[in-house]
């Protein structure tokens, strides 16, 4: 397995109200090409900070991030970022929101591009809503638009920061299922943060457990449940229960420390 992203000794310190806060320290992780990695940890453990660094929004205080063997500095067009809030532009229709990154990159909307946009819209079940504005869509629909807006540029890596956090349980399952299908077809490398351990196991090739602040990696566990997975029934399987219990043991200590 070749490494897509490699995170080496990454740490981050912030100045907050006059004191230095160690958000993260000594994070080491290799993410393989086409791998699906999920990250869980107590709140405030620097999960989002890690993604912001991987996205290149700000530099780490220490350590390095490499993408396909090359050290990254600043934003990288090969890396897409799906945020927890959908961050759609309220003055643009669904389709125009999906087109935004193409406009940013100066891609003219040829037939081929329009077709790809439509294919993605259809794939996530949003056909018929192309000309709706975000306020006319439900939370789940908006989050799907957010995801395909990231996919449209065909990034090699997608970072996802609790993308299904604000959604209700049923919608979340549907979107997990859709995400797995998209991932199987497009074979992206995904780093996915969640506070839901079940979601982390359902989706991942490997689950990363982080410690409380300063956040660092406590364990990395492979999920051997075969694919394709049935997101609606995976919770009943023995393998799922075993890994859930094991990871919850690890996570519980960290959560207890923060409380």
């Amino acid at each position: 397995m070749t490494a897509s992203l490699s995170i080496r000794q990454v740490g981050k310190r912030f100045l907050s109200r006059g004191t230095i806060v160690h958000a993260m320290s000594d994070v080491n992780l290799e993410v393989g090409e086409g791998e699906f990695v999920t990250v869980v940890g107590p709140s405030g453990c620097g999960k989002s900070t890690l993604l912001n660094i991987l996205a290149g929004l700000f530099p780490p205080s220490s350590g390095e991030v490499h993408f396909r063997g090359k050290r990254t500095r600043g934003l990288n067009p090969e890396i897409g970022y799906v945020t927890q809030q959908d961050n759609l532009l309220p003055w643009r229709t669904l389709r125009k929101n999906v087109l935004l990154p193409l406009e940013f990159r100066g891609v003219s909307v040829s037939n081929g591009v329009a077709e790809r946009v439509q294919t993605l819209i259809d794939k996530v079940g949003l056909s018929g809503f192309e000309n709706h504005y975000p306020h006319e869509l439900s939370g789940g629909m908006r989050q799907r638009v957010n995801i395909i807006r990231t996919l449209i540029c065909d990034p090699k890596v997608i970072l996802m920061d609790e993308p299904f956090g604000p959604l209700d349980a049923q919608t979340r399952l549907t979107l997990q299922n859709q995400l797995l299908e998209l991932w199987r077809e497009e074979r992206k490398t995904i780093v996915f943060i969640t506070h839901d351990l079940g979601e982390a196991i359902t989706l991942a090739d490997r689950v990363v457990v982080m410690t409380g602040r300063p956040g660092t990696i406590k364990s990395v566990s492979p999920v051997t449940i075969p694919r394709p997975r049935d997101v609606y029934h995976i919770h009943d399987s023995q393998a799922y229960r075993e890994i859930y219990d094991k990871l919850w043991e690890e996570l519980r200590d960290e959560v207890a420390k923060v409380m």
Partner: peptide
């Protein structure tokens, strides 16, 4: 957030 997302999406 909107500005950061736009930066990641490649906006000058």
């Amino acid at each position: 957030d909107l500005i950061n997302v736009s930066r990641v999406l490649g906006g000058s």
